[in-house]
C-alpha cells in the first residue's frame, strides 16, 4: 500500500490531535503534511502525486465546509475527510453531498481513517491519471494543423470521408491523408478511439483549465 508519491494533508487547530494523526499516518508509511490553519494550507505549495485532505469541521474563522466549497468552486477536486467532535448530522450530510470522502466523529477508529484515506488517495490518483491522459491528448490536438483539426472534429462527429471532402471542398483522398496524419500525431489507432478523445477534449474545453 505505501505509495511514495502520495501525500496526506492534515489540517487541525488542535496540535496534539494533529500530531497524533500525522504520527499514525507516518506509521503506515504515508507522507504527511500538517497545517494548523486553513490559511497556512492555502499558502503552501501542493505536493505532486495523489493528495488527500483530513480536516476538522469546526475552525475558528473559516469552517471546513467553507474550504470545501471554495476548493470545489476553484475546480480543484481534492478528496476531503472531515473530522468532528460532535455528531452533527446536518453538517455531515452537507459535507457528504459536497463530495467529502468521509465524515468521522471523534474519537474514530484509526482503521476508518486509514480506509477513508486510501479511498481518497485512490480517487485522487485516478484523477491525476485522467489529468495526465487529457494533458497528452491536449498536447496532441495542439500539434495538429488547422485543416487536420477541422477534419478530426468532423470525423469525430461521424461524417464519412466523402461527406467531409464535399463539405470543405477538397478531394476525398486528401481528407484521408490529413486524417491518418492526425491520428498518428494523436497516437490514436482507430476511428472510434479518435471520436472518444475528441469528445473528452470538447468536454474539457467547457471547463476552466487549471494552470
Amino acid at each position: 500500500m505505501p505509495d511514495a508519491s502520495a501525500t496526506v494533508l492534515v489540517i487541525d487547530d488542535d496540535a496534539s490531535l494533529r500530531a497524533s494523526v500525522a504520527r499514525l499516518l507516518r506509521s503506515v508509511g504515508l507522507n504527511v503534511h500538517a497545517f494548523a490553519t486553513i490559511s497556512d494550507f492555502l499558502a503552501a505549495d501542493l505536493p505532486d502525486g495523489p493528495i488527500c485532505l483530513v480536516l476538522d469541521v469546526r475552525f475558528p474563522g473559516q469552517s471546513g465546509l467553507e474550504l470545501q466549497r471554495e476548493l470545489a468552486a476553484s475546480g480543484r477536486q481534492l478528496p476531503i475527510i472531515f473530522m468532528t467532535g460532535h455528531g452533527d448530522i446536518p453538517m455531515s450530510v452537507q459535507a457528504m453531498k459536497s463530495g467529502a470522502i468521509e465524515f468521522l466523529t471523534k474519537p474514530f477508529r484509526d482503521q476508518d481513517l486509514l480506509d477513508a484515506i486510501q479511498l481518497g488517495l485512490a480517487r485522487d490518483r485516478a484523477r491525476l491519471e485522467n489529468d495526465t491522459v487529457l494533458a497528452a491528448l491536449r498536447e496532441g490536438f495542439r500539434s495538429l494543423s488547422p485543416r487536420e483539426r477541422e477534419i478530426v472534429i468532423l470525423v469525430a462527429r461521424g461524417r464519412l470521408s466523402k461527406q467531409i471532402a464535399s463539405e470543405i471542398g477538397i478531394a476525398e483522398a486528401t481528407v484521408k491523408v490529413h486524417r491518418s496524419r492526425a491520428m498518428r500525431k494523436m497516437n490514436v489507432r482507430s476511428l472510434p478511439e479518435l471520436g472518444r478523445m475528441v469528445a473528452l477534449l470538447e468536454l474539457m474545453a467547457d471547463k476552466p483549465q487549471r494552470p
Binding site: S20, R23, L24, S27, G85, H86, K106, P107, F108
Partner: peptide
C-alpha cells in the same frame, strides 16, 4: 457540556491515534 464533549473527544481520538501509531512503529 457540548463543548466539553468536543474537548474530551479530542484527547481520546489523539490517544487512539498515538497507540495505533506506536503499535505500527
Amino acid at each position: 457540556c457540548a463543548l466539553l464533549a468536543h474537548e474530551i473527544a479530542q484527547p481520546i481520538a489523539t490517544t487512539r491515534n498515538n497507540v495505533r501509531a506506536a503499535m505500527n512503529f
